[in-house]
Write a protein that binds this DNA or RNA. Structure first.
Length: 184
DNA sequence: GCCAACGTTGGC
DNA sequence: GCCAACGTTGGC
């Protein structure tokens, strides 16, 4: 099952540590830890992730909240040791040892799909992201995933195109590159 | 176990 | 900065 994971692109200092994390950061490191999830339902979703699952990178708590890239689950849920470190921003004195994290692997940048655009698409009206706005790890259906890729101008049947399209940037910056399916 | 008070998330 | 949604806490 595909997933959506939120991260904050703007600097925010928690216990002296900047918690910002962007799709560019993930691209730089290729494989990143998704630590700091401190909500039971989000935890349940982390535990349900399987290696190889597709996921969206969502930027939240910023001017233009949006889906900005894709990644895959690289390592299934394991103990989030940051919960045990009293000096860490994600320390949780109460639930030490029960929280988990996954590793994610960078796949591609997408032309950002704004939250407002997601809301406008009737095919996405049941998205967990929209219904459970405060949940930072949500499931995405296969149909929703493909629909969003289409909104980003990516052919879901040729996912290898998405990397080259988004990276080379130049030739595919137009609004709807050849998909005549845009509603309105 | 109910619910009011309070804290946090995150869009606007 | 405001506030709606919603999770958590604690009194009873």
């Amino acid at each position: 099952m595909p997933w959506l994971l939120k991260a904050e692109p703007d600097s925010r200092i928690v216990k002296g540590v900047d918690v910002k994390y962007t799709i560019d950061d993930l691209e730089d490191e290729q494989v990143g830890h998704w630590e700091g999830i401190r909500n039971h339902e989000a935890r349940k979703n982390l535990l349900a992730m399987k290696e190889g699952d597709r996921a969206f990178f969502y930027r939240s708590n910023c001017k233009q909240p949006a889906i900005v890239g894709t990644m895959t689950i690289d390592k299934e849920a394991y103990e989030d040791h940051f919960a045990k470190d009293p000096k860490h921003p994600y320390y949780d004195a109460k639930h030490t040892g029960k929280w988990v994290m996954v590793d994610v692997r960078y796949q591609s940048h997408l032309q950002p799909i704004l939250l407002s655009e997601l809301r406008e698409n009737p095919k996405l009206k049941d998205m967990a992201l929209l219904k459970r706005s405060r949940l930072s790890v949500t499931p995405v259906t296969d149909d929703e995933f493909d629909e969003i890729l289409a909104m980003a101008g990516v052919n879901p049947e040729k996912p290898d195109q998405e990397a080259s399209e988004a990276e080379s940037g130049e030739e595919t910056k137009s609004e709807s590159p050849g998909n005549g399916t845009k509603k309105d």
